[in-house]
Amino acid sequence: MNSHKGNLFILSAPSGAGKSTLYKALLKADPQVRISVSHTTRAPRAGEEHGREYFFVDVDTFLDMIAEDAFFEHAQVFDNYYGTSKQAIFDMLDQGLDVILEIDWQGARQVRQLYPEAIGVFILPPSLGALQERLDGRGTDSQEVIERRMAKAVSEMSHYDEYDFVVINDNFDTAFAQLQSIFSAMRTRRGIIQQIHGDLLNDLLSAQEGVQ
């Protein structure tokens, strides 16, 4: 177990921008990264499993959890609720793992209030046309749902400037490399290096006494 806390990353994007494909590739490539499994009141999509993609609960259960202050953050998106367990997040961070919260900008604001150290990454599509094509190509949502998502996309993307990093997902390999670089760079911040390599730093600086 590591002696330092991991980094908390907020990953946001309009639906269809490709954030799920990117973070799933990152999970496979980097054993230090975990994805937070959120609770939601929406129905499972084809191939989704309870406890893997989401914890699927009914509205009454979700509202009870809000009343119990069980969520790190929660928000209503379209007609459904989404929330993240506090205990699950802090347990992973205490193990030195980097945790991804895949949430929208509303949830991101809640997280920053409770955890200002959170690092925000916003994924953008290369164009609105590409976004439309990706949503159509899923084959999982009705045309009405797709139209609603497109209508809200501009509003969602207008909050990109609330994030620390922005990745434009035009070419997957390029976008993935950028995302990996962000995670790697955050692990070399001075405060983290001081926690992990405190003894090394003390040894290196102790040599100054002999020189002086």
Rank of each mutant, 00 (worst) to 15 (best):
L22G: 01
E53A: 07
D98Q: 07
L201A: 00
L135M: 02
I193P: 04
R34F: 11
K24L: 13
A75C: 12
R109K: 06
A177T: 13
R34Y: 13
L124Q: 10
L97M: 07
R148F: 12
E156H: 04
H159C: 13
F172H: 04
F9I: 12
A75T: 10
A177P: 13
G18V: 05
E68I: 13
Y54N: 04
A46K: 15
L128W: 10
H159M: 10
Y160V: 14
F90H: 05
I119P: 07
Q212F: 15
L131G: 09
T21K: 08
A70K: 13
A207L: 13
L179H: 03
L97V: 06
T174N: 15
L131V: 10
H74C: 10
L179Q: 02
E117P: 10
L101V: 08
L93F: 05
Q113M: 08
E209N: 12
H39Y: 08
D98F: 05
L101P: 10
K24C: 12
Q132R: 05
V99M: 02
D98C: 03
E73Q: 15
S158I: 07
P126Q: 11
K24H: 15
V111Q: 02
A25C: 11
L135I: 00
L131N: 15
P125D: 04
A207C: 08
L8I: 06
R189M: 11
M65G: 12
I146V: 03
F62N: 11
G210W: 15
H159G: 08
K24V: 11
D79Q: 07
G6I: 07
R190D: 09
F172M: 04
G191P: 14
I89N: 07
F55N: 09
L11G: 04
V145T: 09
I193V: 12
D199F: 02
V99N: 02
Q113F: 07
E156G: 05
F183C: 05
G83A: 02
K28I: 02
P125R: 00
I146E: 03
A177L: 12
F165V: 05
L201P: 00
T41A: 07
R190Y: 06
D98W: 04
